[in-house]
Design a protein around this nucleic acid. Structure first.
Length: 496
RNA sequence: GAGCCAUUAGCUCAGUCGGUAGAGCACCGGACUUUUAAUCCGGGUGUCCCGCGUUCGAGUCGCGGAUGGCUCACCA
């Protein structure tokens, strides 16, 4: 083994006074033969348990551990607040009970240190449930000062880059991520209770399919080939329907090489699920059910508040064909128009449209401008044009539209689903259309996937499919206006 | 990618007309054995985001850059 030598006495000139003082205390502890970074520590209670069960625990001994969040010294007695993952509890330290030696050691304790405490549970004269300390151990000396105790950390840049500090000093941040965990748990429970099997499909794709988006590119050295990070798991999951699975879902990260905004992060979480022998209608039922189920499980109600507006998630949600919604909100009926007529209608409404825009693209533009901003309460927008839905089955009676839907809540598209196209000949035709669009300069058009066509040729049962945006769901349920508030480590440009 | 705004002590923020850098908390020294934003006395700890320029003199004015926020664009 190499000889290791850690120098705790090194003087570093890059440290500010606050950090230098903490290092000095660290050295003092080492000189006293005390390990500042502790070891395994068995606790008997959490802070919250003591607060909740005080009546039965009063007078008993307890062993707790956590981070010191404030210190109030009064000469020969000191009060401190200890924070663990469940909450805060006050410590009372007295020279009489601790002894001179241990009480002296208190001078080496800084706010931020993680201590192990043995003590007696009692209530102070002022009525605060506290632990009178009999013994204390350093479990981790903190070498950096925490942000001010009542302003917390406000600088959003620092909050995201140093989420660990944000979590320590800003109460509520932890809650958002605890809620996120509960939401994902409820979702898994909901789906597995209904017979869905959770699967994992590749994240490294040879063809980035299943959505219209620019992919990230990476490289496999041994094979000397470029690969894409997945933009959607859709085509793999439907291969599983071909293989005989009836109900599958995958919950995981997707990667899209696009802009960053309050609603977009380059990597985000989606849940896709597929149900053999079902259709878009089943998926709409499932969407409103799963939203109501999770809201009930996590928040105890299906009426939630987002940024001051009440949102009623109680099923059923209205289902409105896209053309009807456009007609209602713009006054323009685009039904049955040619691409050219649609472009003309767009110009009359002052919309910026590409000269060679397809009928579907014109519809999208009308929808984005006139309809989307109005969709506050949950609503399904249905029957999307076929050009923008290359994987969805055509609508019976109107081959220009598909059996597709997108639910909207607070103007956000929170999911996307449709009756799956299981006709390999039509699918190949759609891919070719997409390739033509790609050649015309649309680098988000779908790529050809020969193997997927082959899978469909073996026969895929009719099916309904759904993709749920998990980050937006968490935003909605935690009243968070930015996706960065529901991602522990949102993407940030590295700082030089 | 474009526009607007922000960046000053560890944190939260002030800084007037261009004239030697300020507060609260935190921190350091002292007093204090039931406080809780403890209190009282004393102490300011700084690459004013970076660079260039204007000026006798720049935190402040100009130009360029970095990072972030918001809006727009992009994102079916």
């Amino acid at each position: 083994m190499n000889e290791q030598h850690v120098d705790y006495t090194e003087d570093r000139e890059d440290l500010n006074e606050l950090m230098a003082v903490r290092r000095e205390k660290l050295r003092d502890l080492i000189d006293l033969g005390i390990d500042p970074f502790g070891e395994k520590f068995e606790r008997t209670h959490t802070a919250q348990e003591i607060l909740d069960r005080f009546d039965e625990l009063e007078g008993q001994d307890t062993v707790i551990a956590g981070r010191i969040m404030s210190l109030r010294t009064h000469g020969k007695a000191t009060f401190a607040d200890l924070m663990d993952s469940t909450g805060r509890i006050q410590l009372y330290l007295r020279v009489n009970t601790l002894g001179e030696e241990l009480y002296e050691l208190l001078q080496k304790v800084d706010i931020g240190d993680i201590l192990g405490i043995k003590g007696t549970i009692f209530r102070t004269r002022r009525g605060e449930i506290s632990v009178e300390v009999l013994d204390m151990k350093f479990l981790s000396k903190s070498l950096r000062p925490l942000p001010s105790k009542w302003h917390g950390l406000k600088d959003v840049d620092l909050r995201y880059r140093q989420r660990y500090v944000d979590l320590i000093v800003n109460p509520g941040v932890r809650e958002v991520f605890e809620t996120r965990s509960k939401i994902i748990q409820s979702l898994r429970k909901f789906l597995t209770e209904r017979g869905f099997i959770e699967v994992e499909t590749p994240m490294l794709h040879v063809i980035a399919g299943g959505a219209a988006a620019r992919p990230f590119t990476t490289h496999h050295n041994a094979l000397d080939m470029d690969l894409y990070l997945r933009i959607a798991p859709e085509l793999y999951l439907k291969r599983l329907l071909v293989g005989g699975f009836d109900k599958v879902f995958e919950l995981g990260k997707m990667f899209r090489n696009e802009g960053i905004s309050t609603k977009h992060n380059p990597e985000f979480t989606m849940c896709e699920l597929y149900m053999a022998y079902g259709d878009a209608n089943d998926m709409m039922n499932l969407t409103e059910e799963v939203y109501a189920y999770i809201a009930q499980e996590v928040l105890g109600t299906t009426k939630i508040t987002f940024q001051g507006q009440e949102i009623d998630l109680t099923p059923p949600w209205p289902r409105v064909p896209m053309l009807d919604a456009i007609k209602e909100h713009s006054g323009v009926d685009l039904t049955g128009l040619s691409a050219e007529e649609a472009r003309k209608a767009a110009k009359e409404k002052g919309l910026a449209i590409e000269p060679n825009a397809t009928y579907g693209q014109v519809l999208d533009e009308f929808f984005d401008v006139f309809v989307e901003p109005k969709l506050i309460q949950p609503v399904f927008i249905t029957d999307h044009p076929v050009e923008v839905s290359p994987l969805a089955k055509r609508k019976k009676g109107n081959p220009n539209l598909t059996d597709r839907f997108e639910p909207f809540i607070v103007t956000w598209e929170v999911a996307n689903g449709f009756t799956e196209l299981n006709d390999p000949i039509d699918q190949e035709y759609r891919f070719r259309q997409q390739m033509a669009q790609r050649e015309a300069g649309d680098d988000e058009a779908h790529m050809m996937d020969e193997d997927y066509i082959r899978a469909l040729e073996y026969g895929m049962p009719p099916a309904g499919g759904l993709g749920l945006g998990i980050d937006r769901m968490v935003m909605l349920f935690t009243d968070s206006p930015s996706i960065r508030d529901v991602l522990l480590f949102p993407h940030m440009r590295p700082r030089s």
